[in-house]
């Protein structure tokens, strides 16, 4: 089962890298195996195959972490805390990757790596929240207490996230699609005029990064279980 996960995500992500970078962009009429040339985005549009799926996997990881945190508070079983912290750890890595890919895109589209656009503020705050989460965990020695307090904190911090994702970009003008100045006003989801082939690559990338997240998460979870067992044997 684990090999299936690994192989599937390797195959899909390899396909996404090759297709996303290799397929030519043409102006005007384009065939199925070509990408349309979007004015304003141009070749930079290829980043959408990496930035958006990674950001999606980050969201998934943090939501899973929060759900397992709630489960811990309900059932008081340390297994749920191990799941919660494993998912948060993977989410942290993915969040850094989403920030980096976003910053590179911002450099070439908006002129600077960091513009304090509302969306950039929100991902920065997300990094701060989970940074604080791990600091809080390291400040408590006892297992049960640490699990309880850190899940409580992740829930409190988690409920502020909708304010960043849905409320703040509407209030403050910004550059990212979905901001107050954006005339399409479709919200945080990108409404790109994607062609058929682009959609194929985009959705296989979404699936690929989701599987990658689950595989990394299961590896991390097994490592954490062993670590916890070794500690309780001492």
């Amino acid at each position: 089962m684990h090999y299936l996960f690994k192989a599937a995500s390797a195959v899909i992500i390899t396909f996404v890298i090759i297709a996303g970078i290799g397929i030519p962009m043409v102006q005007g009429n384009h065939g199925f195996f070509e990408f349309p040339f979007i004015p304003g985005l141009e070749e930079k549009a290829r980043n959408i195959f990496f930035h958006v799926p990674i950001a999606w996997a980050t969201t998934l990881a943090f939501i899973m972490s929060m759900i397992y945190g709630i489960q811990y508070l309900r059932k008081q079983d340390i297994e749920y805390d191990l799941r919660s912290v494993s998912s948060a750890g993977i989410g942290m890595i993915l969040c850094v990757l989403a920030t980096v890919t976003g910053a590179v895109w911002a450099k070439f589209n908006w002129g600077a790596f960091w513009n304090w656009d509302p969306r950039e503020v929100s991902i920065f705050i997300l990094l701060l929240i989970y940074g604080a989460y791990f600091v809080l965990r390291s400040a408590i020695d006892e297992d049960g207490k640490r699990a309880k307090l850190s899940s409580a904190y992740s829930i409190i911090a988690g409920i502020t996230v909708p304010f960043f994702i849905f409320v703040m970009p509407r209030l403050m003008g910004g550059l990212h699609p979905g901001s107050a100045g954006d005339e399409s006003g479709k919200g945080p989801v990108l409404e790109l005029k994607m062609s058929g082939m682009m959609l194929v690559v985009f959705f296989s990338s979404l699936i690929g990064f989701t599987i990658l997240y689950f595989w990394m998460y299961s590896v991390k979870l097994r490592a954490n279980r062993i670590e916890h067992q070794l500690k309780s044997q001492e």
Partner: peptide
């Protein structure tokens, strides 16, 4: 620990 934990939560209010 307190300011570290509180800052990200309080940012929407502050902004």
């Amino acid at each position: 620990l307190f300011p570290v934990l509180a800052f990200p939560v309080l940012v929407p209010i502050l902004l």
